[in-house]
Amino acid sequence: MNISSSYFSGRLTLFLSGELDHHEARGLLGSIDDLIEEFMPRECVLELSGLSFMDSSGIAVIVRSAEKMRLLRGRLSIENPSAQVMRVLEAAGIERLVPVTSGNMGGLL
């Protein structure tokens, strides 16, 4: 699993790729924490078009990241999940907590 980032005027976009499971989750959460602390964004976007698999370990990562953004008085959102990832997000009811959108060009405008 891999993470890369771009930052523009208060908006931090994190591009996740590969497979997100329990084996990868702890390292990923550490990376996300570090990037949020480095940029202190108002908005953090998890861009998931490159993520080919995610299970409920990813749900924990999303929930923790959303809590972190809320503590900083910012917000987290999710963009472009694949069909498999979307099914997991829906089954976990994540949309009540974090907005999910599709069809954006990776937040690059």
């Binding site: 329990h22 989750a25 702890r26 959460l29 299970d55 409920s56 370990s57 749900i59 924990a60 929930v63 923790r64 997991v88 089954a91 976990a92």
Partner: peptide, 10 residues
């Protein structure tokens, strides 16, 4: 903190 409690639900 590392788990979501959603495994069986999924």
């Amino acid at each position: 903190q590392e788990r979501s409690g959603m495994g069986f639900t999924i």
